[in-house]
Design a protein around this nucleic acid. Structure first.
Length: 805
RNA sequence: GCGAAAGUGGCGGAAUGGCAGACGCGCUAGACUUAGGAUCUAGUGAGCUUAGCUCGUGGGGGUUCAAGUCCCCCCUUUCGCACCA
């Protein structure tokens, strides 16, 4: 039998058609099977199409999804499009094409590319966040937030991208520039819709205990939420009935507070204006600060600056001494109370400030040398110069002073978070309209549910306005409406949502994508949730992942989803770099396009290489030579069909290796060590070649193990071998732990720490047998004989170690 | 500055404290061939006085019968956070 050569193009198209026709990967609720929900971050369909980095995650979880199906799970592995957002809109504006049209084209391209790679997605559940049927429910969920008071409008300084002309969330500002376009970001006060994610800060933190996230992700979320315990303390202002409230994590150092600092934006400054004697100087400093971007203010601030509020002094409630009050931009209005008590002896920032401006430094915790630097340790050191706290440890002093503050009515324990509320407004066209109507009499009124979705008007111009308002503001037919509550003329909200909105709940919609009565039925979400395994990029750890957990918890509180957490397990993949070891980008010209690879080598080769090129969680460079090697491997697999001979059981020669391979491939997939799983499959193929044949039973199981990685070729060979049914309908290979062990083993003999040879013994051999065999071996014996044996260690099955003198 | 991860052949990378370099690429030699960017076979960490020996996982110490792996110090790279009181 001559099988002809391996032509991926023929068999890949064939099997993709068959899977589609037979609906092989369409998920149906089936209570007789355990369910398994596999999720990848759905792509943003950009104009450039896929590059080889994107499919790394899709391939890995496709391997998992296919393995789970073979293991008897009812698997949901869905796909869709996160298609609202700036790149599309910017492209549309530039090229005078409607964003909806651009989106349609981009999706078509991505769909075709993904289909060519043979992922086992359930394409029947595909949707885009830009579909009115979908964003209707995004708007609906927003209205729930609004109803519960978690969506509110605030005049706050926002990060304003001067290039995109939109407000950005803190998370979207990277190194002082816009994450998307790299444009300059300045602070600007604007009335914005906000979502109160801070109301969920504690639960977002605490419930990390309920889920299985890789360490890196968990730690980053914890740091981003940034919980810290401390106390709020009131400092009276001398000669005034006003007070300054500060937050401190070190109330134990209160006796060492020698001055105070307000943020330049602090409202108290205006209230105290009458008493301030250097108003000009103060105002000049405040203006100077306002002009600075956050980047200049934080990243570039090499040296502390500040101005004293002359005429104002506060009273340290412990020492009763009057202390000066300064303003400085090292104190942020957005954290705590926007004011601090400065303890220069025990806080390095305060220390630096005090040194520069000659402010007093009083040691209240012994143990350091405050003539050199601030002493910030909390684990050792004893309170000094602190009245009733003297002699206590830091820990005890914190407890004692907090009690005292409460007794005096001038302080309370307090928890603060770094996490800020989510700026939810965008002044752009290509996003979900915020479904509210502004009425002079009724205020903001929700659009009634039966009028959702509020559709984007189909217009020619969607350039941002110079005033920074949304392009929608210029469209009168959109803006002018009537108040749903009182019927009077009213205006629609013209801000749209950020593109994090649609991605905050898409995994719920996948469970019931065509439902026009609900965002998803209770039955469906109850069956499929939580997502069992979610893989995505580290870059989404503090944005998307936190936002979607927040939405999910909110929906849980509304009784709309069955679980407090959306994702049971979260993992993350490393980046695929260009051949030059640099990040792939158009500008570097090192982008590799999967289309070319599929054409030249086939989708299976592409998939195998994606999994083989390096450790999944680490960045690895692409190598065209490496791809060739994987193609060579599949060519060898293809030719195996001519080497298969009858045999319903494993041959004695390969039995151990078969069991070892099944075990290794299975374990490695679970541990996301896809590269070593592929290596194990290669080793097995090498063994078949060495032997010159493979028994039917061996080849059959090999194909099943290969299937998740190379689904097309394994399906095709399965059929050609005349095995029953489809390979995608088989059971995963079982292995026998005891048969995965060799019966005879080589034990290395170590003398004084050096390997001097090996002896071959039965696995069950005892120490004595190995010892005598070692002594019979001349090469080994010469290192032992005539010496005195001081120590012997035998680690069964591993090594025999002898120490001689 | 803080936190995390990493540093292993010419390259990508393997190694529950137990024979470092699996698997692949590349390279060398041979076979087959009109040809080879096909295929097959063998070899491939370095050095040496080459039946073998010595050295070898960023550098320096240490623990251990045994260290890439554990501990201490240092260097480098990448990523995240960055005046969060």
């Amino acid at each position: 039998m001559e099988s002809g050569s391996y032509v991926p193009a023929d068999i890949e198209r064939k099997w993709q058609r068959i899977w589609e026709e037979e609906g092989t990967f369409f998920a149906k609720e089936d209570p007789s099977k355990p369910k398994y929900y596999v999720l990848i971050e759905f792509p943003y369909p950009s104009g450039e199409g896929l590059h080889v980095g994107h499919p790394r995650s899709y391939t890995a979880l496709d391997v998992v999804a296919r393995k789970r199906r073979l293991e008897g799970y009812n698997v949901l592995y869905p796909i869709g499009w996160d298609a609202f957002g700036l790149p599309t809109e910017n492209y549309a504006v530039k090229n005078k094409v409607h964003p909806a049209e651009v989106t349609k084209r981009n999706i078509a391209r991505y769909r075709q590319q993904l289909k060519s790679l043979g992922f086992s997605f359930d394409w029947s559940r595909e949707f885009s966040t830009t579909d009115p049927d979908y964003y209707k429910w995004t708007q609906w969920i927003f209205l729930k937030f609004f109803e519960k008071g978690l969506a509110y409008k605030a005049e706050i300084p926002i990060n304003w991208c001067t290039s995109c002309k939109i407000g950005l969330a803190n998370e979207e500002v990277v190194n002082g520039v816009c994450e998307r376009c790299g444009g300059e970001v300045v602070r600007r006060v604007k009335s914005q819709w906000m979502l109160k994610i801070t109301a969920y800060a504690e639960r977002l933190l605490r419930d990390l205990d309920m889920v299985d996230y890789i360490e890196k992700v968990r730690v980053q979320q914890e740091n981003w939420i940034g919980r810290s315990e401390g106390a709020e303390v009131l400092f009276p202002i001398a000669g005034s009935d006003r007070t300054i409230t500060v937050f401190t994590t070190r109330p134990d150092t209160l006796f060492g507070a020698t001055y105070m600092v307000l943020s330049p934006e602090h409202p108290l400054i205006d209230e105290l204006k009458a008493q301030i004697t250097n108003t000009d100087e103060v105002e000049a400093y405040r203006e100077q600060t306002a002009r600075k971007s956050d980047f200049e203010r934080t990243e570039l601030a090499l040296e502390k600056t500040g101005v004293p509020l002359k005429g104002i002094s506060a009273i340290n409630p412990c020492t009763k001494k009057e202390i000066p009050v300064w303003i400085s931009d090292y104190v942020l209005m957005s954290y705590g109370t926007g004011a601090i008590m400065a303890v220069p002896a025990h806080d390095s920032r305060d220390y630096e400030f005090a040194k520069k401006f000659g402010l007093p430094i009083v040691e209240v915790i012994s143990g350091g040398d405050i003539s050199k630097e601030a002493y910030t340790s909390v684990d050792e050191g004893t309170l000094v110069n602190s009245g009733f706290l003297n002699g206590l440890s830091v820990k005890d002093a914190v407890r004692r002073i907090t009690e005292w503050l409460q007794e005096q009515g001038i302080g309370t324990p307090k928890v603060n978070y770094k996490l800020r509320d989510w700026v939810f407004s965008r002044q752009r066209y290509w996003g979900e309209p915020i479904p509210l109507v502004s009425c002079d009499d009724c205020g903001f009124v929700p659009v009634p549910e039966d009028e959702l979705p509020v559709r984007l008007p189909d217009v020619q111009h969607y350039e941002p306005t110079d005033t920074g308002e949304s392009p929608l503001a210029n469209i009168e037919s959109f803006v002018n409406t009537t108040c749903p509550r009182c019927g009077k003329p009213a205006k629609r909200e013209t801000d749209t949502m950020p593109n994090w909105a649609g991605s905050s709940w898409y995994f719920l919609r996948y469970t019931d994508p065509h439902n026009d009565k609900e965002f998803a039925s209770w039955d469906k979400v109850s069956y499929w949730l939580p997502v069992d395994w979610y893989n995505g990029g580290m870059e989404h750890t503090t944005l998307h992942l936190l936002y979607s957990r927040f939405w999910h918890k909110f929906l849980y509180d509304c009784g709309l989803v069955p679980t407090p957490e959306p994702y049971r397990k979260r993992t993350s993949h490393g980046m695929i770099l260009g051949e030059d070891n640099e990040k792939m980008s158009k500008s570097r010209g090192n982008v590799v396009n999967p289309d070319d690879l599929v054409r030249e080598f086939g989708a299976d080769t592409f998939r195998v290489y994606e999994m083989f090129l390096g450790a999944f969680d680490q960045a690895s460079p692409w190598s065209q030579q490496g791809v060739r090697g994987c193609r060579r491997f599949l060519d060898r697999v293809w030719r195996l069909q001519d080497m298969v001979v009858d045999g319903d059981e494993y041959s004695p020669e390969l039995e151990t290796l078969m069991h070892q391979t099944a075990k290794k491939v299975s374990d490695d997939i679970e541990r996301m060590k896809f590269n070593t799983a592929v290596a194990a499959l290669m080793t097995l193929v090498n063994a078949f070649y060495e032997r010159g044949q493979a028994l039917k039973a061996e080849f059959r199981d090999f194909l099943i193990l290969l299937n998740p990685f190379a689904p097309h070729i394994s399906e095709e060979l399965w059929e050609r071998m005349g095995f029953a049914g489809r390979i995608s309908g088989q059971e995963w290979v079982q292995w026998d732990e005891s048969k995965a062990l060799e019966d005879t083993i080589d034990i290395p003999i170590q003398v004084n720490g050096k390997i001097r040879g090996t002896v071959t013994v039965a696995r069950s051999a005892q120490k004595e047998e190995i010892r005598s065999k070692a002594e019979e071996d001349k090469a080994i014996a010469k290192f032992i004989s005539d010496r005195q044996i001081v120590k012997e260690v035998y680690v069964p099955g591993k090594i025999y170690s002898i120490v001689v003198k």
